[in-house]
C-alpha cells in the first residue's frame, strides 16, 4: 500500500484574505516578524490496487479533477511506497 500527501495552496498571484487575517492576528500577538503567511489544504490518502508506476499520474489527475481548482490553486504531491 502506498500513501499520498497532497498540499494545495492558492496561486501566488491570488490574494489570500484568510492568510492576511491570520498574519495580522500573529502581529497582534507580538510576532512582528511574520510575513507573507498563506493558508492551504493538506490531504492524505492511502492508495491500493494500482501499480506504483501509475500512482503519480493518478494522483495528479485527482488533483486536476477534484482536489484542487487549477484556476486559483497549485498543488504538490508526495507519494510514499
Amino acid at each position: 500500500m502506498a500513501k499520498a500527501r497532497v498540499t494545495i495552496t492558492l496561486k501566488k498571484t491570488i490574494m489570500d484574505a484568510q492568510g492576511q487575517t491570520v498574519e495580522k492576528a500573529l502581529h497582534n500577538l507580538g510576532y512582528e516578524g511574520v510575513g507573507n503567511l498563506r493558508i492551504g489544504k493538506y490531504i492524505e490518502m492511502e492508495l491500493n490496487g494500482a501499480p506504483a508506476t501509475e500512482l503519480p499520474a493518478q494522483v495528479d489527475e485527482m488533483c486536476r479533477r477534484l482536489l484542487a481548482n487549477p484556476i486559483i490553486e497549485d498543488f504538490h504531491v508526495e507519494i510514499e511506497e
Binding site: A17, Q18, T21, N69, I71, I72
Partner: peptide
C-alpha cells in the same frame, strides 16, 4: 463555476 459551465472561480469574501 466548478463544473466549467461558466468561466472563473469563486473565492472567500475579502472581508472574511
Amino acid at each position: 463555476l466548478e463544473a466549467g459551465m461558466l468561466p472563473g472561480a469563486m473565492m472567500r469574501n475579502v472581508c472574511q
